[in-house]
Every structure is written in C-alpha cells, then in structure tokens.
C-alpha cells in the first residue's frame, strides 16, 4: 500500500463531503446531489465520479470488483482496479458473488445482487434531460416542478418517426414516481435490474453529481401504454456458454461477415461454462481442461 496517500487516496475531509452527498442522495432517490468533485489522478470522463464514490465507501475489509462493459479485463477496469489495490490495499475479485463493492461502467452484472453488496456506477452525463435542454438552470427547474413533458414529447416523437422509442442505452427511468433519472449508459436490457437488493450509487465526477437508489426502490422505465418498455437484446444465445437470457457482445471474427455473440458479463459466462453449459462455439471440454 502506498505510503504517500491516505487510505483509498482521498483525504478524510473530501471523503466526508462525498459521504454527506451520498446520504442525501439515498434520502432523495433519483435526485442529483451536487458535490465538490475533486480532480483525480485519472481523466474526467474515465470514471472519476465512480472512483470518488467507491473511495468514500470502501472499508479495508471490502472485496472490490471493477467492470467496464461487463468485463473485468477491459483496460480501464484494470486501471481502476489497480488504483484501488495500490491506494486502498483492498482485496479484489472478478467474481460478482465474492465482491462487496462493484464499480461498473455501462453494465449491471447478470447475477442478481444481494443486500450485502454496493454497486457504484460511473456516470458521464447524469442529467436525463440534458440532450433535450442543455442548460442546468433550466433542467433543475424542470426537476423541481416535476415537469417532464419535454421527455415525453421526445419519446413520443421517436415512436411517431421510428415506430418505437429510439433509445437503446441510458434509457430514462422514473424513481418512486418522482424523479426522472439517467441510469448511466447501461443497455436498456439492464433496466429491469435497477430494482435491486443492493445499494446503488451513481457518481458523475466532471458534472459534480451523485445520486442513489436504496435497495428495492421502485424504478420504472419510461414508456407509453400502447408502446410498453421492451428490454430487448440480440436474438442469439451466447456462443460460449449457451445462455439465452444475457446481454451479448457482437464479435467480428473475420472479414467475410463472420460474427459471434458472447456474454458481455465475462464472470457470468465463465461461471456458466465451468458449470458445464456449452454454446455453439465453446471450446471442447477436454481441451478446456488440459
């Protein structure tokens, strides 16, 4: 563990400031709490919000998992995991089940989370209304007045133009029938799992916002009666573990149009393979063992 820096890098005063914001976020689910985000030793937009939230939550007894796009070994996930290994000395894992704190970018793990877990999201643009109204001064008033007409108009225009709501990720949700919230750029396939037993915390460093979902908070994806929300995914099973209920990455395998679909959650996929599940392109069992 590094001697020059405090446990989990941040100084205690900064952690207290973040912790106060987290508590207010939990008390007002879905509301974006402004916080005095610090400059971190990694670039804004690369998880500084998530890293600050994780740093404020970690205890020495925690086991940390970091995923990006569902995978533990994507470069930025590796980099953030290494940061906490160095600065907090906490145990790390790739196993969703063994983790007590999971920092994620763009996915919710496939495995249902438990009451003993905390899921920390990295958020680029926390404001769900930002693409409709660029001004913070305006969107803040809209949230205050619960005036989400603009969002409904946008979704409705999507349907009129495209036959369906043309938002595939960062699909807006309404929390406890009050705040419209951006669930971060997770695919809408993950939206149903926003209702979880775990504490979910969202950190946007550059935009200086923290928001939260306590366990079992009601989270409803915005839709219309005649166009109900549809958490669709690629219509294939995983080529490695055969799962037909997981979110898939499409992998280009050659320049002849060859492709395969594999679980984006690498831990879930390898666990299923270890349990004997096999997809079309899974390595033969004997070969895998040797």
């Amino acid at each position: 563990m590094s001697q020059e820096y405090n446990f989990a890098y941040l100084d205690e005063q900064t952690k207290r400031m973040i912790r106060r914001a987290i508590l207010k976020g939990l008390a007002i689910p879905g509301y974006q709490v402004p916080f005095a985000s610090r400059e971190m030793p990694m670039p804004y937009g690369w998880g500084t919000g998530g890293v600050q939230v994780t740093a404020a939550c970690l205890t020495p007894a925690d086991t940390l998992k970091v995923i990006d796009q569902g995978a533990d070994d994507t470069t930025n996930a590796v980099s953030i995991r290494k940061f906490f290994e160095r600065t907090a000395g906490v145990a790390t894992t790739e196993s969703t089940r063994d983790a007590t704190v999971i920092q994620t970018r763009h996915r919710i793990p496939e495995e249902p989370l438990t009451e003993d877990q905390i899921l920390v999201y990295q958020v680029p643009i926390p404001e769900p209304l930002r693409f409709l109204e660029p001004r913070e001064t305006e969107t803040r008033v809209m949230h205050a007045l619960e005036d989400y007409g603009l969002m409904h108009v946008k979704l409705y225009e999507d349907i009129a133009r495209n036959g369906e709501i043309a938002t595939a990720y960062a699909y807006p949700v309404k929390v406890e029938e009050r705040y419209v919230m951006d669930p971060s750029p997770i695919p809408k396939f993950d939206n149903p799992r926003l209702e979880s037993a775990a504490i979910q915390l969202f950190g946007a460093g550059r935009e200086q916002r923290i928001y939260a979902l306590p366990p079992y908070t009601q989270v409803v994806s915005l839709d219309f009666e005649d166009h109900p929300f549809n958490p669709s995914k690629a219509d294939h099973p995983c080529a490695l573990c055969g799962a037909d209920h997981t979110y898939l990455d499409e992998v280009i395998t050659d320049d002849q149009g060859g492709r395969m679909f594999v679980c984006s959650d690498t831990d879930y996929c390898s666990r299923r393979q270890a349990d004997g599940h096999r997809g079309d392109m899974a390595p033969p069992v004997l070969e895998a063992l040797s």
């Binding site: 989990a8 205690e12 939550c57 205890t59 020495p60």
Partner: peptide
C-alpha cells in the same frame, strides 16, 4: 481513515 469508513 479506517474507523470513519466503517462508521460511514
């Protein structure tokens, strides 16, 4: 650092 983390 440790005690406040646990308390938080």
């Amino acid at each position: 650092a440790y005690d406040s983390a646990n308390a938080f």
